[in-house]
Design a protein around this nucleic acid. Sequence first.
DNA 1: CTGAAAGCGCTTACAG
DNA 2: CTGAAAGCGCTTACAG
Lengths: 338, 338
Amino acid sequence: MKHTRSRATGRTTLAQVAALAGVSQITASRALRSIASVDPQLAARVHDAAKALEYVPNPAARALASARSQSILVLIPALSNQLFIETLEAVQGILRPRGFEVLIGNYHYCQEEEEELIRNYLSFQPRGILLTGFNRSEAATQLLAKSGVPCVYMMELRQEHGIVCVGFSQEEAGAKVADHLLSRGRRKLAFVGAQLDARVLQRRDGYQQAIATAGFAPALEIMTPEPSSVELGVDLFNRILMEHPEIDGIFFCNDDLAFGASFEALRKGVKIPAQISVVGFNDLPGASQMVPRLTSVRTPRASIGEQAASSLLRLLDGTGQDTVTVDLGFELVVRESS
Amino acid sequence: MKHTRSRATGRTTLAQVAALAGVSQITASRALRSIASVDPQLAARVHDAAKALEYVPNPAARALASARSQSILVLIPALSNQLFIETLEAVQGILRPRGFEVLIGNYHYCQEEEEELIRNYLSFQPRGILLTGFNRSEAATQLLAKSGVPCVYMMELRQEHGIVCVGFSQEEAGAKVADHLLSRGRRKLAFVGAQLDARVLQRRDGYQQAIATAGFAPALEIMTPEPSSVELGVDLFNRILMEHPEIDGIFFCNDDLAFGASFEALRKGVKIPAQISVVGFNDLPGASQMVPRLTSVRTPRASIGEQAASSLLRLLDGTGQDTVTVDLGFELVVRESS
DNA sequence: CTGAAAGCGCTTACAG
DNA sequence: CTGAAAGCGCTTACAG
């Protein structure tokens, strides 16, 4: 074998497929991308050849030549919250069958990390980006805008020109919980917020406003930047019992906190809801089996993922509007704990 | 401006960086990749130029030219189990700082899907692959072997030439649980397995063997391919109460099943551990707060992710051995439920 | 509808 | 240690 400067990888290339099909490389390219202008007979020959040679396109070459990839970036604040896993799964369920590669960027509720991820992944020339909420660094926002990559925002709603978002009103959800607790005759209400991301604050705002509208005042607010967890719920519940024994209703910003409170209540002999009503948020797996069964707000995270992905797809193929607000609502699921 | 056939993207390119630094493109390339052969002075000029121009390398061009990417694929069976999330986070914690892009492939405990993911992602020419366990389709195994991409296996152990794996002995863990239940005087033992992936079966085998070795026999085995969940735990626990009231100890293959059992026991007034001992597996978040606090096996999933990623890195830079078995062990955490 | 040529932005393989 | 040339495997931009 003659020594050459060849750097070929050994993989079948488009050129080989074209040769076997007896067409030019560019016709093979068009046929495989299902571009209409190719004669059906030729296209069929190309497809046969590709199959016979087990041809797999080289995404790097494709990306380099076309200056666009087949990947879509999804930016989520955490993987540790089941909530976002379900959103992610729904997103992948829509995008993968359509041939897109889903890149997952978990920024651990950290703006700097989100910015870094955006900077990094933008170099991959993603076709689109799915983002969580609107709260990010100025630099990140600029990067996104400058890139021109289509974006869809998940979880929160914002009616603004050029914004496509899919979610529900976190404020209304918070208000609904407040109204529910008040309707149960609870008047000494506590709000317990952890992580303190934008959505928790929005829920808190809606909750506070509803209490005010009803002519009452919140009794207690515990806000901690620590991540939400069962353990934290135990601690904060104990703190309330010790320091604020008058509290008769608690709205936990996430179910896992409420789970911890429920466990501790069982241990301490505190009766839920007789003594204290407890409401969680997100209706995570297990909430309905808790003792007592937990009242919570069921959030449409899977639908949000689906619809956000679909909206992005429409943006990409030009059939979508560039300003859309999809409100998927939420549902207060009243169980035994309130 | 003269009309050209230019297809440039507008991004700064290596050529521009090289021009500004006053060196050739290839020298700029070497400098940025920290290849030693470049004169430190020139290298510094290149880095300055890159910074000044905000140069970001084009991964597609790089991948095309070098026939290798900077991405590493991680294949996990589920995202819905907190276990794998922690492994994933640990993997990313090692690989991202080293400049690798982590591609996540979730195959939903489905061999066909895993095979499809491997086929797809192989076209991206990943530098390495992190896999979960050894149980996969023949075609998937072939694809991996043919590709020549370095692989590291997580979770299970197998001493075999050419295999690098990081995990713990699932059999030993199962045996440990059996011995523990027996040491508590339990003689009517039930094993409850869900999902029925390879690791669950290995735990079951170890557990059965330990019981036999101790001179006893298992009383009941419930095996269901359904995914593990709190709800399923409730149902299966009820089934045991109804159909096998003699059972005095249960080993649930995953904590969430044990969570469900604990809730149902509280509801039914079944005393754990007085009437039935309950042991879970994985020591998931919340296990220590359960009522009663759940005895479980703490698995080193984060360390597994870390060490697997590090082993892969060593394989890539040539400093690793191609046959390694890293046993990270496990810990039986005895709490109130047994 | 089809194709020859050029080009995407890098790195490899040589040569000096 | 440095560089000119070629090439990676595709798609774009033209032209017919």
